[in-house]
Simulated assay, not measured.
Amino acid sequence: MRIILVLCFLWANSLLACGKDETAKIEPFAKMEQDYNFENLIGYEVFVPEMSKGYYLTSFYLGIKDSVAASLDFSEAFGYKGYYSVIFQVKPEKLDALSLTLSYSTTKDKKGMVLCGEQVQLNLKELLNAKQPKMVVPPPPPPREVNNGV
């Protein structure tokens, strides 16, 4: 009887282990965006996970050593579920001095005071070389019916 119980336990665990992994790790990545180039600045779009270790993305900071520090607005990334993105332009020679910092907190609505969480430092050059997930374009909304007043 014990052997049967042990076999049932191992079989049940193997079924759970082989199921679809809903907690797959979402890794940040970046792309050069030709549409956002301006004079001698190159456009970049950075994609970051909405959640990290159970915390929600609340802020995205960009800094250039001894020059500038700014908080950038981010939005849900088109075509990449679970990602947020931000677009900015920078001179190519400033890439080594560029720092990207994400702040994650328990604040789901991304407003108000942040009481606890974590910060993540990113390197744009590494993000440009990171593996990108396949883009999934959502289907268009269904056409609306036209009422001709009949």
Rank of each mutant, 00 (worst) to 15 (best):
A12G: 07
N129R: 11
P143N: 10
K20H: 11
Y61Q: 11
F78R: 14
V146Y: 01
P139F: 01
A70N: 09
T107D: 03
F9T: 14
K131Q: 14
K20M: 04
F88C: 07
L98P: 01
S103G: 11
W11Y: 12
A130T: 06
V48T: 09
R144F: 02
N37E: 14
L41W: 08
G79H: 03
G63I: 04
M135N: 05
L127R: 06
P139S: 07
F47Y: 15
K131D: 05
K20N: 09
D66K: 15
V136A: 11
V136I: 15
N123L: 02
Y44D: 02
M113S: 13
L5G: 02
D66T: 08
V114L: 10
K111A: 12
Y44T: 09
T58L: 04
S103Q: 14
T23H: 08
P143L: 14
F29Q: 12
S14M: 14
P133N: 03
V6N: 05
T58V: 15
P140N: 08
S59G: 14
L16W: 04
V137P: 05
K91L: 13
L102V: 11
L72P: 09
K94H: 04
L124M: 09
E126S: 14
L115R: 12
M51N: 05
N40C: 09
Q121F: 11
A30F: 01
F29W: 06
A69E: 05
L41F: 15
N129L: 14
L41K: 06
S75W: 00
L124W: 00
V150T: 13
F74N: 09
Y61C: 12
E27L: 12
V150Y: 01
L115N: 09
R144A: 15
M113Q: 12
L100K: 07
E39H: 08
Y84P: 03
N129M: 13
P138H: 08
G117W: 03
K134P: 03
L102F: 07
K134T: 15
K20C: 03
S59Q: 15
D21P: 03
Y44K: 14
L98I: 01
P143K: 10
E76F: 03
I42R: 14
P139L: 02
G117P: 10
D35A: 10
K134D: 04
M113G: 07
V48H: 03
Y61E: 02
L72V: 10
A69R: 12
K131C: 01
K134C: 01
L15E: 12
N129S: 13
S99P: 00
G112S: 09
S85L: 02
A17C: 10
S103P: 00
S59I: 02
M51T: 14
L62W: 00
D66V: 03
N13S: 12
L15N: 05
M32W: 00
L15K: 08
K94P: 00
T107L: 07
A17V: 04
K110M: 11
S85Y: 00
P139T: 06
P133F: 02
L115I: 13
I87A: 08
P138S: 10
F88A: 07
V86L: 04
A97F: 00
T23Q: 11
D73V: 07
V86S: 09
C18P: 01
P142F: 02
F74I: 04
I42L: 11
P143W: 07
M32I: 11
F9R: 10
L5C: 06
L95N: 09
D96K: 08
V120I: 14
V86P: 02
W11G: 13
P140Q: 07
G79T: 03
L5S: 07
E27P: 00
S75Q: 13
Q34N: 12
E39K: 05
